[in-house]
Design a protein around this nucleic acid. Structure first.
Lengths: 104, 104
DNA sequence: ACAATATGCAACTAAATGGTTGCATGTCAA
DNA sequence: TTGACATGCAACCATTTAGTTGCATATTGT
């Protein structure tokens, strides 16, 4: 889970995920198009995404196809964000209460 | 949004959020208890959480009370994770299909 | 008033991060 | 078979990050 959060912390990596979400199964070179970064920089980002299991790759001849794996993102939602949803209203009203009695 | 992702990337910061989720409105010293970190390190983490608007503080005399703000977490779920939920099954079946025809 | 308590600020350090360049390897197509 | 194309590997660099130590300031209880 920590690897996933770390992988998602970088904007370039999130936009790579966006690109794969828009069109799945792209090659490295396709993913590089229009980016202000060298191919090697993109490679490094993709390795980090792979290690976090957010991207899966398949070699096809000399090409490497990249596929989005949405499962870890889903798990962040289920296992982490949902925890904070419970008690969200309670936290907010407590926060409001404390802010209001600030001037006591 | 980027600040929130960055803030959540660190395990120590996520566990500070956990602590506030367990008990809201703790002082700096309370949040330091039992952690393998100096108070100053915790302060820095809390500053980052505040800048990401994940934590709000209220001074109360010489104490500083920390309150969890669950809104940015909720927004990550709504604005970001949900985007990848749509098309999740499509992505997974495409991924499976590609993995299976690997040996062509 | 003053000692204890709670937090703030600044300088410094080590390691991680995001990026680069240069070269190597593997695959395809004419 | 050979040149072009797609990707891989390694060394290097600058900046950011996570942490430390030391000292300063502000508040409170006796």
């Amino acid at each position: 889970m920590d690897e996933v959060f770390k992988a998602l912390a970088d904007g370039s990596r999130r936009s790579l995920l966006d690109r794969l979400h828009a069109r799945n199964g792209q090659t490295l070179n396709e993913l590089c198009e229009g980016l202000a970064m060298t191919r090697q920089a993109v490679t490094k980002h993709l390795v980090i995404l792979e290690e976090a299991n957010l991207v899966t790759t398949i070699r096809h001849g000399r090409e490497k196809l990249h596929y989005l794996n949405p499962v870890p993102i889903h798990q962040i939602g289920e296992r982490w964000i949902k925890k904070f949803e419970r008690g969200k209203l309670a936290a907010l009203s407590e926060l409001k209460r404390q802010l209001e009695k600030r001037d006591e």
